[in-house]
Design a binder for these strands. Structure first.
Lengths: 123, 123
DNA sequence: GTCAGCGGTATCCAGGTGGTAACTGCCCTC
DNA sequence: GAGGGCAGTTACCACCTGGATACCGCTGAC
């Protein structure tokens, strides 16, 4: 399986910072990484395109965490050139379901959430 | 609406520490608080029973966060005696859906997750 | 008048998370 | 043989979260 479209640099520009949401999947960037891997394996440098706010160190951390939990696999192709591919494992793919549920909730209640914060800060 | 059963001290003893899961809802204790409020409003001291590992400061923090996000309401009854009740708002109740999705995923894949960690730490 | 229970606060502190900046080794191309 | 891309690593640092401990004001019961 190879991937179709290159990842766009502004892929997550519209997305609310995950720190605003009342839930998190894995560490700060894990959910976005999983989204990037949704339709096929990606290389390290490929992931850095939409996640350009993340430094390589932090991206490595996040990927190692996902790998440790068996959600993402890491494959090194040494020849003909160095090529490291990250892909969702079946377990990782199964996590798209709760992730989608969370995203759907956030999309449906985003305005309520913002209103609640506003009226709490300035009542 | 009043609550039926008192909360048991060992309510969450079996539950895996949320830090082991690849996702979190709100802060460390928020998901458990929401579960406690699932079938009716509860008092501060009532919540402390199953959440006895949480100090009052931290529980207050968590409740304030949930209140700020409009997921939980706080009502003070001054008479005849001081009585503070926390309850799920409709928004908070709507969050049970993604929360259940996450719990179902965790229950279904808990063993895989543990295996993945084991084999990562000792390959 | 003292004491317990309620619903918290105040203060301090340790550890973890995320970020910056710079650097590395390897291969390939020019 | 110099430079550039790939896939990171290293060292350092700031902030935030969560926890420990102690304390507070109020009320009602004894």
């Amino acid at each position: 399986m190879t991937h179709r479209q290159p990842l766009a640099p502004d892929m997550f520009d519209e997305l609310c910072p995950s720190s605003l949401l009342p839930f998190r999947f894995g560490d700060k960037w894990a959910a976005l990484v999983i989204r990037c891997l949704e339709d096929g394996p990606r290389r390290f440098s490929e992931l850095r395109v939409p996640l350009r706010r993340v430094t390589p160190k932090v991206l490595t951390q996040s990927l190692r965490g996902l790998e440790r939990d068996g959600l993402v696999s890491r494959t090194v192709h040494a020849a003909p050139e160095l090529r490291v591919e990250y892909a969702l494992t079946p377990l990782g793919r199964s996590m798209l379901e709760p992730l989608d549920a969370a995203c759907a909730w956030a999309a449906a209640h985003w305005d309520e959430l913002l209103d609640a914060r506003d009226s709490y800060n300035a009542p």
